[in-house]
Amino acid sequence: MFDLMKLELKKNNIRTYIISTFVISIIMLGFIYLLAYLPQFDPNDADLELFVGYNNIISLFSVINMTVFCVLSSVMYSRFVIEEYSGDRVLLLFSYPIKRRKIFISKLMIVSLFTVIAMVLCNFTIFAFFGVSETIYPLVNESITLETITKVIKTTFIMAVSAACLGIIAMGIGFIQKSIPATIISAFLLCSLLCNIVAGTLTSDAPVIVFLAITIIGAIIVSSIVMKKNSCMEV
């Protein structure tokens, strides 16, 4: 399996996605300052209450970053899966003495791992940078406590896993439609939809856990459907 994953890295230029992650990190770093600064535009605006305090900033930022990484993950699936299985290259891929299921799982693993690692690193770097700058020149009228840090770690991991799982679900939709736009658009729509549902409840734990569980179960169901289709696919 490890060899198959290495082959996927060789076939698809992984550097592109590493560079994308850097670019995303820089843009999102700007975004977190925007979030922190928003309430100061108009301190009397009740709508801006959503952006006050570290907890709100962490939640909002992580949800939006999840959407970004989920879309990145769907772009990777477009290349690793959709393009390869809907083009003529699949004729060759299926004529190798390796179970189709194994090749497919190696693709899922490489993209999921990349998504989780990239998003965790991106989140941590940005929060660390922001945290340090807060101690020097604070924008938020609150002090950073151990609780804040735990919240960062917890939210980051939950959102990174969600991004990977939602990416898999989007890939499944794209696979059935045999379409790259369908893959990327469904990633975006899925995230927006789920974000809207959970955004208001993000400050408490229970709904987030439920949200995570649903995306994981969804990803498992979708990947087993796609794997079954893939195993008996005629090309």
Partner: peptide, 14 residues
Amino acid sequence: LKNIGSIIETPMFY
């Protein structure tokens, strides 16, 4: 499959 080499229609590459 280990013992077959094939070209089907136009060969595709990376």
